[in-house]
C-alpha cells in the first residue's frame, strides 16, 4: 500500500516509543534486547520534539517537491513516483551532506559511526510485506497513523461535514 504517515499532534504523549521502534527496525537483529548492545548503535529516523505546551513526533515528510532530491548530485536519493517515499542508495552516496542542509524540516542527518545518511524510508520493506511502518505500529495512542492519501481526504471531509451538522443542531436549539 502506498500511504503517508499522518501525525495527530493532540494524541502524542511524548513516550518516544516510535524513536525506539525506528532504531530497532534499523538494527541488525531487529530485536530490542539485542539492538541496545549493537555497535555502532542503530540510528533513528524520527524525533519526538518537545514544545512548550505539547510534544509531537517528526520524521521525513516525503515532500512532493523534495529539496533533498533536487540537490543530490549523484541521484543517491531517489523515489519511484510521487507517492513513494524518498529512499537513499548508500552505494551512490558520496557524503556531501547537501541533502542534510537542504531539508527544511531538519530530519536528514549524517551518522558518523555508521558512515551513512539516515532518513525515514517509511519502512519500505515492512510496508511491502503488508505491515505498517515501525513507528506507527509502536504508537500506543494512535498519534501516528499510516494511511492512503485518499483515506485522509475522506476523513477530513467527514469531520468537516460533522462540524457543519453540529453547528446546525446548535442553531436549532
Amino acid at each position: 500500500m502506498k500511504g503517508i504517515i499522518v501525525v495527530k499532534v493532540d494524541r502524542c504523549l511524548g513516550c518516544k516509543s516510535c524513536e525506539i521502534a525506528c532504531a530497532v527496525e534499523r538494527s541488525r537483529s531487529k530485536v530490542l534486547s539485542e539492538a541496545i548492545h549493537e555497535h555502532p548503535a542503530p540510528p533513528k529516523g524520527i524525533w519526538v520534539e518537545k514544545g512548550n505546551t505539547f510534544v509531537t513526533p517528526l520524521q521525513c515528510r516525503q515532500c512532493e517537491d523534495a529539496p533533498c532530491l533536487t540537490v543530490c548530485p549523484t541521484h543517491a536519493l531517489h523515489r519511484d513516483d510521487r507517492q513513494s517515499p524518498v529512499l537513499i542508495d548508500g552505494g551512490l552516496c558520496v557524503g556531501c551532506q547537501l541533502c542534510v542542509l537542504a531539508c527544511p524540516f531538519g530530519v536528514i542527518r549524517m551518522d558518523d559511526d555508521l558512515h551513512a545518511i539516515i532518513k525515514c524510508d517509511q519502512c519500505s520493506q515492512r510496508v511491502s510485506d503488508g505491515e505498517t511502518p515501525a513507528c506507527v505500529a509502536s504508537c500506543l495512542t494512535g498519534a501516528l497513523e499510516f494511511k492512503r492519501i485518499e483515506d485522509v481526504l475522506q476523513e477530513k471531509k467527514e469531520a468537516y461535514l460533522l462540524t457543519i451538522e453540529r453547528s446546525a443542531e446548535t442553531r436549532e436549539l
Binding site: V9, W47, E49, K50, F54, T56, L58, P104, F105, G106
Partner: peptide
C-alpha cells in the same frame, strides 16, 4: 527561509508551526 538554521532548530521551527496550527 530556514536555510541558515541548523537541522535541530529546523525541527523546532516546524514543531512550533505545527503547534500554532493546533
Amino acid at each position: 527561509d530556514k536555510i541558515a538554521m541548523c537541522p535541530s532548530c529546523r525541527r523546532a521551527a516546524f514543531r512550533d508551526a505545527a503547534g500554532q496550527a493546533l
